[in-house]
Design a protein around this nucleic acid. Structure first.
Lengths: 191, 191
DNA sequence: GACCGTAACACTAACCGTTAGTGTTTTGAA
DNA sequence: TTCAAAACACTAACGGTTAGTGTTACGGTC
């Protein structure tokens, strides 16, 4: 924390990165279900237990780069300018996130995710956790005249917008459409 | 279908029921995580493979009685009177479902579910499948002037209402509150 | 009433993700 | 230099799940 990260932490990060890279490469080459954990560990030249000390599950290897999703959403709430309205701020952030994951370069990974039930399930369960964090961030803003239930509902709706838009034929238009609905829901909740 | 179900089907149903009852009893007695599949099978006096031919997973043993959830929701859409508005019909059905699962008699089961991450995850993933069925039922109604995206969003919001209300301190009030928001979202989607 | 195809069921043995237990090396700090 | 912590490795196992291979029991058919 005081000094530039020491050798130990760099090594740890390197090991973690090597595991993630190896896993993603193998998964894309031969399919997520066809590659076992023991194989990933062997190819990355670490022990299985080491792999699991860096990642909590096999699925987490795939979503490693998605980790700032939660942070970006909560920061869209906590870090917005005073009197900046909540829903438009969330709309902007969701739009950016959708653009990011529908970009051409990310296509193979998302195709793999959509092709594996285990990965889809993991993603949705992860998004629910994100919805809970978002709900907490919303509840923590004293300037918002929302009941706890309404705040949780808005958080869920926002996550729904992301999930639905990602799979829609025109993702950006879907974000617009769903956020118009969320905006209306917001108005009656705060009236 | 033509004759009263034959002996074979009765036996099959009896085996299935015995497995489910045994499992639920053991889970409630000693905790979901503390009871293994091999143990359930032994206590129900069937082979492990037989158990898995009746239920797709360990979690499914717990939600066996919840199977009409999906059907009740889709029927609330397809079976409503002509010109009966959609959202209030869904609200009535969700309210009934929430009442049902927050009833006193169901408390131990739901306490067990809330206490096990695996079960919670399974439930949420199941609810998402239900949302997709509901979205299909909504999309199939030609009297509804909804875009596909708006229909899917409404379906998700309705499932969110159930999940959030089930955990809210006052479940019925939460249903009311969230459905006011859904009603507003519906109005802008159909305007 | 005998016969046959099918579907339920059983059994073994394994696969796979995951973890506990135990020890060894590396590394930052005192 | 020394020490405690943390990363890492290894073995062995656990629990859910499935493939493979039979073995019954049943319902419809002749």
């Amino acid at each position: 924390m005081t000094t530039p990260p020491g050798r130990r932490e760099r090594k740890k990060a390197a090991t973690r990165q090597k595991i993630a890279d190896t896993a993603l490469r193998l998964f894309l080459e031969r399919g997520y279900d066809a590659v076992g954990i023991r194989e990933v560990a062997a190819e990355a030249d670490v022990a299985v237990t080491t792999l699991f000390s860096h990642f909590p599950s096999k699925e987490a290897l795939v979503f490693e780069r998605d980790e700032n999703f939660e942070q970006r959403l909560t920061e869209a709430v906590t870090g917005r300018a005073p009197r900046d309205p909540l829903v438009p701020a969330l709309r902007r952030e969701i739009l950016a996130l959708v653009r990011h994951c529908t970009a051409e370069s990310a296509a193979p990974v998302w195709r793999m995710i959509d092709g594996s039930p285990a990965l889809r399930e993991y993603e949705e369960s992860m998004r629910l956790r994100h919805a809970e964090s978002l709900a907490a961030a919303i509840a923590a803003d004293p300037g918002l005249p929302l009941t706890p239930t309404a705040g949780r509902a808005i958080a869920r709706f926002v996550i729904d917008a992301y999930s639905l838009a990602r799979e829609a034929p025109e993702p950006e238009a879907a974000v617009d459409e769903i956020f118009r609905m969320i905006e209306a829901a917001w108005r009656v909740a705060t009236s």
